[in-house]
């Protein structure tokens, strides 16, 4: 039987490939894909030589800002994205952790003001792939990051 792509190619938009499957739904939440009106194809637990299981997201007619995409570095530091124009890969992008993250990551300190007041969290990126809470100074390793739950 002939091998076929499980998800169709898109004319214009953004493709995020090689997402570790356990991170897929965090990426979906972070990019607010539930609020998109254009076609979104999500492939989950696909075979991957590199990752074992991988996931892929194809978003038609959707282009993100650098700021939006760099937020992904919090959950997938080595993610690669393809910007598609006219069925061709127009640009390949890697994500880089931004200096500041607002409203993305939850503070692990239960006594932090951000966990007790209706407000956005705010973190600064510091050495060693770690984040420091702008308010209570708690330092979190990227491995322990929990995202803010969207209402």
């Amino acid at each position: 039987m002939k091998k076929q792509l499980l998800v169709a190619a898109i004319e214009n938009g953004t493709v995020i490939d090689h997402i570790p499957s356990e991170k897929l739904f965090a990426v979906v939440n972070l990019l607010h894909l539930d609020q998109m009106t254009s076609a979104v194809t999500i492939g989950y637990n696909l075979e991957s030589q590199e990752l074992g299981k991988k996931s892929i997201i194809k978003m038609a007619d959707k282009f993100f800002t650098d700021e939006e995409l760099n937020q992904l570095a919090v959950i997938c530091p080595n993610l690669t994205l393809c910007i598609i124009r006219d069925y061709e890969i127009a640009e390949k992008r890697t994500v880089t952790l931004p200096d500041e993250l607002r409203g993305i990551v939850r503070c692990t300190n239960p006594k932090c003001i951000t966990n007790n007041e209706p407000m956005h969290t705010h973190f600064h990126t510091i050495e060693g792939q770690r984040l420091r809470c702008h308010y209570c100074n708690t330092v979190i390793s990227l491995d322990d990051v929990r995202l803010v739950e969207k209402a």
Binding site: I113, T114, H134, Y135
Partner: peptide, 28 residues
């Protein structure tokens, strides 16, 4: 909320000295 208390007191005072049990409250 802390925000409401601070905004309310700001109408009356020129400066606010605050102690709070939550960490980061003064920054906010």
């Amino acid at each position: 909320t802390l925000k409401d208390t601070i905004m309310m007191v700001s109408n009356y005072a020129d400066i606010i000295v605050m102690r709070h049990y939550l960490e980061g409250a003064a920054r906010y």
